[in-house]
Design a protein around this nucleic acid. Structure first.
Length: 657
DNA sequence: AAAAATAAATTTTTT
DNA sequence: ATTTATTTTT
């Protein structure tokens, strides 16, 4: 490592770092060894430390393009860049910052041909994957005896198994043996399915989410010169939330960082993504890969009052396979967390809404309050209670806004323009034209895909179907107009779609909420104006969903609003007051999740440690759900807490547990 | 072969 | 309640 000249200015800088950071953070920020592992409890200023470390590298004249900063969301990357700018006074350009997936996409586009695609490849989401598997499964089922057909999987489960085996870096057959023993006899069929799926993706010039990681790794492993190139490119690698990386991501980092300095932060107690094949082992085993690793523990908690930390510590202590680690508080004492046991869901929602009004009247900003829950459907009752009281709020996580049919329609149009080989998008668009169904589409596509540019061929009407000729004519006319609009101006393109016959289709298909839907499209168009190209827009749409949802959801005239969020989406954030709702057995821990109770408890831990000053935990005595089945009783996470951890609201019987 | 009608199944968390 | 699969009608 080269030495940097020290001068007066430098002394000021390091003095400033000493002032603004605690000793552990300072060590973490300035340590120049080749491997650093930050074990950081919640609220310990981990993001702060990581941000300062980036700023310090830049200050020490490391060229920005030599730094790879991997964050858990793209939003987190943006925020860190903003903070670096504030610290240094200028914004470095060329920094590689983003999620594993977005950086993977960037690398793969650069070397698309080596990865077996063209640079304009599409990115498939889960829904696209399932649609591809649907036709594949239909074909495979023909090989089965009639009574076996029901035994074989639905597209959803099949897609999950495929994805899980890939993300855990386990061979498909082995994965099924270990996790879906009842499916073992179908392993050959699964293999066939995988092959067909890969082929379909290749023909469609598309990658799915998993490919963005797997193909990236493969690219480096199979091309010595690229491996060398990127190993030299990234002199400094920094990764946030390392406890939530999967096997592929771990291998990527170790490979890229063979010769560089690697700096990881994470907290094994906050690992909440094992359903996505995250392995806590990755962070715990890191010192074995890099024996010279410096381990820095950040356990001073700057966020929460001692009472909240005590509750968090008591809860997480119930986990067996956990590094014992007590958070140390530096804040003065405050109020104990409160538990409220409601009669039913309605009372629970009303209690929270009233309490929020109360806090608001006392002068608390809504921005400082969040309501957290295990599953997104749990917000419904509360949303109604908030609407009745005209309390402005925004929801995060579990959002279906971008999954709604009309938005996906628009995206399908755009995807055809960007990547004319995208079969799924062609299919979606074709089927909404009158007279064209599945069979007719297959006929058309068989002809169309033979052309080097199917879009061009369609526009020039090189192909016309026997049936549905009228609908096809409308489709090609629209595409001609869109192509003429160019690829640069995304919002203009979306406007053009809304001026095409698609508008009438939308109006006719959704007579009740046509206006709302077209307004949603309008906002999407407005958002599109931020992007310099169609490709950037589409990539952002698929990889940064939350970022878009935030700006596209109906604008709030007030800039002070309450946050409703799933716990997963609240990760890394903090509020003065937290309400954690739905603490019922069967809801949280959720019944499908209770087979991994430790992880559910970590989720509880993440939730309560979001709170700075006030924490309210609520549950409903009679807890009815959708269609009849109800789950009874308070969550184990409440029952197992020692009584000194909380106070019961006056409406609750203290001896209930 | 497409569109409409009816029966059946399905719910965790996300890039 | 809403989405998805299957059957019936056009």
């Amino acid at each position: 490592m080269k030495e940097f000249p020290r001068n007066k200015k430098d002394n000021d800088w390091y003095k400033r770092l000493k002032e603004e950071l605690n000793p552990e953070q300072y060590l973490f920020v300035t340590q120049r060894s080749s491997a650093i592992l930050g074990i950081a409890g919640p609220g310990s200023g981990k993001t702060r430390a990581l941000t300062y470390r980036v700023a310090n590298l830049l200050y020490e004249n490391v060229p920005p393009e030599k730094i790879l900063l991997v964050t858990f969301t793209n939003k987190a990357a943006e925020e860190m860049k903003k903070r670096v700018k504030e610290i240094l006074g200028y914004l470095p350009t060329g920094l590689w910052a983003g999620t594993f997936h977005s950086i993977g996409a960037r690398v793969l586009r650069r070397h698309a041909l080596l990865a077996g695609r063209e640079a304009n490849f599409s990115i498939l989401d889960e829904d696209d994957r399932e649609r591809m598997l649907k036709s594949i499964l239909a074909a495979l089922k023909l090989k089965l005896a009639p009574k076996e057909k029901d035994l074989f999987l639905k597209k959803r489960v099949a897609g999950k198994i495929l994805s899980l085996s890939r993300n855990s870096n386990t061979e498909l057959g082995t994965y099924i043996e270990n996790n879906n023993a009842e499916m073992v006899k179908y392993i050959p069929l699964f293999r066939e399915m995988e092959t067909l799926y890969e082929e379909k993706k290749r023909l469609a010039n598309a990658f799915d989410f998993d490919d963005l990681l797997i193909r990236w790794l493969k690219l480096l492993e199979e091309n010595e010169h690229l491996k060398k190139y990127y190993q030299e490119q990234f002199e400094h690698i920094l990764v946030d939330e390392y406890q939530d990386t999967n096997a592929i991501q771990d291998r990527l980092i170790l490979l890229l960082g063979e010769k560089s300095s690697i700096c990881l932060v994470g907290d094994d107690a906050q690992s909440i993504y094992s359903f996505r094949c995250a392995e806590i082992g990755n962070i715990l085993n890191f010192p074995e890969h890099k024996p010279s690793c410096t381990i820095v523990k950040l356990i001073r908690n700057y966020r929460s009052i001692p009472e909240i930390l005590e509750l968090a510590n008591c809860s997480i202590a119930q986990n067996r396979n956990q590094f014992p680690k007590e958070l140390q508080t530096i804040r003065p004492s405050g109020e104990k967390p409160q538990v409220f046991l409601a009669k039913n869901n309605l009372e629970e929602a009303n209690f929270i809404a009233d309490k929020i009004l109360e806090l608001y009247d006392e002068g608390e900003e809504l921005n400082q309050i969040a309501v957290l829950y295990r599953s997104s459907y749990l917000s419904q009752e509360l949303e109604m209670a908030l609407l009745r009281r005209a309390i402005p709020y925004l929801t995060f996580g579990g959002l279906k806004f971008l999954q709604r049919a009309h938005i996906k329609d628009i995206i399908a149009w755009l995807k055809i323009i960007e990547n004319p080989r995208d079969e799924l998008s062609w299919q979606r668009i074709a089927l909404m034209h009158n007279g064209i169904g599945e069979a007719t589409f297959q006929d058309i596509w068989a002809l169309l895909r033979a052309f080097p540019d199917p879009l061009e061929a369609a526009i020039q009407e090189k192909v016309s179907p026997r049936r549905g000729a009228k609908g096809w004519k409308i489709l090609t006319t629209t595409l001609r107009q869109l192509t003429a609009a160019g690829k640069e101006n995304v919002s203009y393109l979306i406007q053009a779609i809304m001026e095409s016959p698609y508008k009438e289709y939308l109006a006719q298909k959704y007579p009740e909420d046509y206006i709302e839907r077209s307004m949603g499209i309008e906002r999407l168009a407005a958002y599109g104006a931020r992007f310099a190209s169609l490709q950037e827009f589409l990539e952002s749409f698929l990889l940064e969903e939350t970022l878009i949802v935030e700006s596209v959801k109906e604008e709030k005239p007030e800039n002070d609003y309450l946050t409703l969020s799933t716990i997963h989406s609240a990760k890394g954030k903090e509020w003065k007051t937290i309400f954690l709702i739905g603490l019922n057995e069967g809801r949280f821990p959720s019944s499908p999740g209770s087979k991994n109770l430790d992880e559910e408890r970590r989720l509880f831990y993440v939730a309560v440690t979001r709170a700075k000053d006030n924490l309210f935990l609520t549950c409903a005595e009679d807890d009815f759900r959708g269609w009849g089945n109800y789950f009874g009783g308070p969550s184990v996470f409440l029952k197992e807490l020692p009584l000194h951890c909380y106070e019961c609201s006056e409406r609750m019987d203290e001896n209930y547990f």
